[in-house]
Design a protein around this nucleic acid. Structure first.
Lengths: 358, 358
DNA sequence: CTGAAAGCGCTTACAG
DNA sequence: CTGAAAGCGCTTACAG
């Protein structure tokens, strides 16, 4: 081991700047700037010489300096919530991949509470760091977008919202949760179930409401009455699913099938069903929501409504970058788009009697 | 709706700068700077007047300009891998929370492959954005830290590594995976199981190796021979767990218990066990690893080795910030620390015959 | 094809 | 207690 190694990461190298390169090459910083930005008007010899020096000195332009002068940073802000859960992290993964391929860095923020005290301070933090746009990946509840009205929908940079239903004035990307609720319920009806209960997420969440609306409307269309006793509220966790299921069994004893608003809660239902020796799918059909990879390995494998949350993140980045770049091109007509991704039902053994190949 | 609203987020406001505030207050920018940085030497009246103007103009200092002049950004880089999985996202969640409480922003990067082509370009990207330090949250494999030697352990800023076992020269925080493997196996032995198989993660991963070492050493200590036929390799996914379990049943028919290197794979084992009508825990005891919340709702509920990945992220931030701040205080003696967090076993019905209260 | 000047929005010495 | 000057590392017009 040589001496340098012993020092470890103690040693803080000084930054190589455009001045060093210019001096070494005997040109102005201006010309170096042209080279690193791939401008056409540089003599080929000059360009090559400078490129060699850049490599030799291991020069990397400061994005910070560039951001200051250009008033943009090629960085997107991402405000998320509930990262420890599968859904939000899959979406974030889509965001990171797509941002990378579009050449943007990501400044990440996680809210501790869905009901945010002061969203504007979060946004100000991002603005102070000169982000070019923001992805607001916080699922809508009945109150957590009120601040939009208060600030009169005015932002100094584009903000794209994920998983929201209201506020058509602003650009957003969401899954068609209503459609998902319909698909789940239609499938159960088609399998011959009649008394179909529902376990929802927190009723305050827009996603919960829409999934439930899909369930209710589908039953109405089939002339099946829906009462308060036919559903119970969970919190998305498996434990809450188990709890809600117990309540439902009391309130709705004739229930022969159940649509559960996410796969985690469905897992809790399965556990309680096993405990009571309920046969699935004969005595109880179960449909989940999300389509997490694990759901194929529940026992029995779970029929579920698949939503592509990774793609949700990808599309969010695409949309936001489009808006940013349109704006920079000086396009004044900016019409907010609302995008809806369609979920798909994945049929497995928790709702069909015959064994299908798995 | 008024006119302003119709314009939506089209309108790009100009940034309010320190000059505007200074001009409005009739002082120099210097004095405003003192106020926003809470320096003591400002006349109380001046301070108050400036603060009012700051509020009135909605002024927020540019972190970018500050970063340029101070050569630091109060931003940490985070390079992660496999965000769509539960573990890494829980760790990331710990990182976001702790970074926020320490006053640091986060620049997020996700590798597409664990075996990285060019880690240095990832780091250069972060350096170009003036991050103060980096958390390298990419699980170690036998080859993906080779670049450390190539660059001779020299970084221009501190880098803290997560989930690594080699390279004691660099600061790191990891879970004691070896201990976890021991705990799992000791528990199975204590329950009276004798023929204990193992499903590992990809053998190339340091975490897999250590968990397996714990299993093997514990059996050796108990004078139980261990052969190649007693373990199989998975990829962490439930599907791979199911596959590996089928192989093991062939190779090791007398197996009466199994230690599975994560909960997802254990779920796959449970599924296959149900299919074959194996009684758990009577005919087969099962222990997982991770302690994801869902594991309490598997059927039967899964005994598992709990690791606190959220805390792992928190501690990573604490350590890195300590290193950064020591360095800024000019402390030259920086001795890299390796921290190991201890896992705990959580006993549930998949390994104990008597029903314990759940 | 190349360079001198100005400036992005701050902070850091240095005077007074 | 306050301000004039210089500068962080770049890019943007503007000349030539």
């Amino acid at each position: 081991m040589e001496q340098r190694r012993m020092e470890g990461s103690l040693h803080r190298k000084k930054r190589v700047t455009i001045k060093h390169v210019a001096h070494e090459a005997g040109v102005s910083t201006q010309t170096v700037s042209r080279v690193i930005n791939n401008r056409p008007d540089v003599a080929p010899e000059t360009r090559q010489r400078i490129n060699e020096i850049i490599k030799k000195l291991d020069y990397h332009p400061s994005v910070v300096a560039r951001s200051l002068i250009q008033q943009r940073s090629y960085t997107l802000g991402v405000t998320t919530y509930g990262l420890q859960h599968v859904g939000p992290s899959r979406t974030l993964s889509g965001i990171t991949h797509q941002a990378e391929s579009k050449g943007y860095a990501l400044l990440l923020n996680e809210l501790v509470e869905n009901e945010i005290g002061n969203p504007q301070s979060v946004i100000q933090d991002l603005l102070a760091r000169q982000v070019d746009g923001i992805i607001w990946a916080v699922p809508e509840t009945s109150t957590n977008l009120k601040w939009l009205e208060e600030i009169n929908y005015e932002f100094s940079i584009p903000i794209l919202f994920l998983t929201i239903g209201s506020h058509p004035e602003i650009p957003s990307v969401s899954i068609n949760n209503y459609k998902g609720g319909c698909l789940a319920t239609q499938h159960l009806l088609a399998q011959g179930y009649h008394s179909i209960g529902h376990i929802s997420g927190p009723y305050d969440w827009w996603e919960s409401q829409r999934r439930m609306d899909g369930w209710r409307d589908t039953l109405h269309k089939a002339n099946i009455p829906v009462s308060k006793n036919h559903w119970a509220e969970g919190t998305w966790s498996s434990a809450s699913g188990e709890r809600a299921f117990k309540q439902l069994l009391e309130k709705y004893p004739e229930m022969d099938a159940i649509f559960v608003a996410n796969d985690q809660m469905a897992l809790g239902v399965l556990k309680e069903a096993h405990k009571r020796n309920l046969r699935i799918p004969e005595e109880l059909g179960i449909v989940g929501f999300d389509g997490i990879p694990e759901s194929a390995h529940f026992w029995p494998p779970l029929t579920t409504v698949y939503q592509d949350q990774h793609q949700l993140g990808c599309i969010a980045v695409d949309e936001l970058v489009n808006i940013i770049e349109d704006q920079n091109r000086g396009m004044t007509k900016y019409s907010p788009k609302r995008l809806l991704l369609e979920p798909e039902i994945v049929v497995r053994a928790s709702t069909i009697q015959e064994n299908i190949p798995q």
